[in-house]
Design a protein around this nucleic acid. Sequence first.
DNA 1: AATAATGTGGGCTTATTAGCCCACTATTAA
DNA 2: TTAATAGTGGGCTAATAAGCCCACATTATT
Lengths: 79, 79
Amino acid sequence: MAVEEAELFLKAFGERISKLRKSKNLSYRKLAQRCNVDYSDISKIEKGLIKIQLPTILELAKGLDVHPRDLFDFDFPKN
Amino acid sequence: MAVEEAELFLKAFGERISKLRKSKNLSYRKLAQRCNVDYSDISKIEKGLIKIQLPTILELAKGLDVHPRDLFDFDFPKN
DNA sequence: AATAATGTGGGCTTATTAGCCCACTATTAA
DNA sequence: TTAATAGTGGGCTAATAAGCCCACATTATT
């Protein structure tokens, strides 16, 4: 239950990152240059394979030039 | 530089959690009962001492009955 | 006064990210 | 055809959260 929900959340978050990145025409490597996150890790984040921490969230927001809040701008059931 | 910024971010996030928790008249222990986070850890999160991961963010949102996005509803310079 | 609740901080083990690098494949551009 | 770029996945070490528990001081509550 909780496990599935967390996985859905990770996937939704990853898809949001992917959408933002593509909207700015950035490859993994290009986005990685703009923030302090390795390009191969960005791939894993977008696939929902990694449970990143707050500082990494901030880095992604900076690289994508949005407020951290915008990274969570996706539908998700409140239960 | 980046270190300071991350610390400011952690503090702002913690203050946001604190504000939401108090607005619902929840103690650390009561909030902990509503989500899967230890009460002593919530104290540390609100003080910005811990860099929590995505699943913990989800848990806090559930315990506070808000969308994860709302946990990031605070001012923060976009640089 | 006695009890309960609260905030705080320390410690512990295990699991996992952070922060790297490398190699491979497929696609695109020169 | 050749070179460059892109996505993917594996591996490594060190740092850190997760998930606990406990103890103490302070502040309500009864």
